[in-house]
Deep mutational scan, measured.
Amino acid sequence: GKELVLALYDYQEKSPREVTMKKGDILTLLNSTNKDWWKVEVKATANDKTYERQGFVPAAYVKKL
Results as ranks from 00 to 15, higher is better:
11 Y>R: 02
5 V>S: 02
61 Y>K: 06
13 E>C: 12
37 W>G: 01
9 Y>R: 15
25 D>W: 11
20 T>A: 06
10 D>C: 06
57 V>W: 02
1 G>A: 12
50 T>S: 10
55 G>E: 00
53 R>K: 11
27 L>Y: 08
25 D>L: 04
41 E>L: 14
51 Y>H: 08
41 E>S: 14
43 K>I: 15
12 Q>P: 05
46 A>Y: 14
61 Y>F: 12
56 F>P: 00
20 T>W: 05
62 V>Y: 02
33 T>Q: 12
14 K>E: 07
5 V>K: 00
13 E>Y: 04
31 N>Y: 07
59 A>C: 06
7 A>Q: 00
4 L>F: 15
44 A>G: 12
39 K>M: 15
10 D>H: 05
11 Y>V: 00
63 K>Y: 08
26 I>M: 05
6 L>A: 05
64 K>G: 05
14 K>Y: 04
24 G>L: 03
12 Q>V: 14
26 I>F: 05
22 K>S: 08
39 K>D: 03
22 K>F: 11
27 L>I: 07
61 Y>S: 09
47 N>P: 09
57 V>K: 00
42 V>D: 02
44 A>Y: 15
12 Q>M: 12
17 R>C: 15
5 V>C: 13
38 W>Y: 06
41 E>H: 07
22 K>I: 07
9 Y>I: 08
11 Y>Q: 00
7 A>W: 02
19 V>H: 00
39 K>H: 08
27 L>N: 01
45 T>I: 13
41 E>K: 09
58 P>A: 04
4 L>G: 03
42 V>W: 07
29 L>V: 05
63 K>R: 13
65 L>W: 07
52 E>F: 15
40 V>P: 00
16 P>K: 10
62 V>C: 15
43 K>C: 15
29 L>D: 01
39 K>S: 06
32 S>G: 10
61 Y>I: 06
1 G>M: 13
28 T>Q: 08
23 K>A: 12
64 K>R: 13
39 K>C: 15
31 N>W: 07
50 T>V: 13
30 L>Q: 03
42 V>I: 12
56 F>S: 02
48 D>N: 13
57 V>C: 03
47 N>C: 13
56 F>K: 02
35 K>P: 14
8 L>H: 02
19 V>A: 05
5 V>G: 10
14 K>P: 03
40 V>E: 01
62 V>H: 02
14 K>R: 14
6 L>G: 02
6 L>V: 15
56 F>T: 03
7 A>L: 02
4 L>R: 09
40 V>W: 01
16 P>Y: 08
13 E>D: 04
23 K>E: 06
21 M>H: 00
34 N>S: 08
3 E>Q: 14
57 V>G: 01
63 K>A: 11
53 R>F: 05
63 K>I: 14
43 K>E: 10
49 K>L: 13
52 E>H: 15
33 T>G: 08
14 K>T: 12
45 T>A: 10
47 N>S: 10
8 L>Y: 03
47 N>Q: 10
21 M>T: 03
5 V>W: 06
21 M>C: 06
43 K>N: 11
17 R>W: 15
30 L>A: 02
5 V>E: 00
64 K>V: 11
63 K>W: 09
5 V>P: 00
11 Y>M: 00
44 A>V: 15
17 R>S: 11
6 L>I: 15
7 A>M: 02
8 L>P: 00
62 V>T: 03
29 L>A: 01
50 T>F: 10
6 L>E: 09
2 K>W: 11
46 A>F: 14
35 K>Y: 07
35 K>H: 10
24 G>N: 05
49 K>G: 13
29 L>W: 01
31 N>I: 07
47 N>F: 12
30 L>H: 03
31 N>G: 06
50 T>Y: 11
43 K>Y: 13
63 K>G: 06
28 T>S: 08
30 L>C: 07
14 K>N: 09
28 T>R: 13
45 T>D: 10
56 F>H: 04
38 W>P: 00
53 R>A: 06
38 W>T: 03
15 S>E: 07
